[in-house]
Amino acid sequence: MAWRRAVQRFLRDRAATLGTALILLLIVAAVFAPILSPFPSDVADFHTAHRLRPPDSINWLGTDRMGSDLLSRILFGARITIAIAFIAVGTALVVGVPIGLVAGYYGGWASNLLMRVSDIFLAVPQIVLAIAIAQTLGPSIENVILALSITYWPFWTRLVYAETRSLKNEVFVESAIALGASPWRVMVLHILPNIASAIIVRTSIGMGVTILTAAALGFLGLGAPPPAPEWGRMIAESREFLPEAWWYATAPGIAIFMVVMGFNLLGDGLRDILDPRIRRGIGAK
């Protein structure tokens, strides 16, 4: 019954519903890109005769410098965005959460050292380290994902470590230990479920942050090489055609905005439901 009330409250929250709708839109765009795009082959093809056409009834969002249909490229770009966000954040979670859990549970000098290492990672903005890594590896989607995962796991380790340490002294954990539960059991069955909501809320907002960082890497030329329809790269390509081709940068920019907005709103909504201790507006990342 409790979850049903939670779902009802979530649906009443207009902002959270809008966020969910925006993310569903992204997923639909990515999955059905070949069906939805008016010119699916335009991801790789170019028709120089049609280059830089403003939006009209044929090319709804206009065409780019190669004469490719922007709407088709944006729809296929959703696949890259989803791949980067889900894999990079997922990897960071898979690495960061267990490390934070174990370090927080056992403590000791090794955990201290580990936390210091993650502090160092967190001392530098994610994109700066990611630039260094992506540049060394060479421009490709895989390398962007790798760079973002390497720079993002310490955030989760820090978060889970802090939560685990404070939970470890709670009575229910102490009694589980006293009843003879193995450390593994305590961590997975007693501590993890209690910090899950904090992780879920921050995952949603982390997706938005990751998409923005990935777009910035693409903008700098460190993302997928052309002709991949990566949104950040499309914006970079459009720069030399301002102010004449205003539509060129508009389409991918709004696509990024909608998706990041979706994840941020969803994160806010989830926080209200899952984490009533924290009121909306607190906690940016």
Binding site: G208, L212, A216, P243, F257, V260, N264, A284
Partner: peptide, 23 residues
């Protein structure tokens, strides 16, 4: 303020350039 956190900074930069500098 919610929108401000969702805009790609480099895109915002180009839009401001377009509006205030070019137009």
């Amino acid at each position: 303020s919610v929108s401000g956190l969702a805009i790609a900074a480099f895109w915002l930069a180009m839009q401001l350039q377009f509006l205030f500098a070019m137009k």
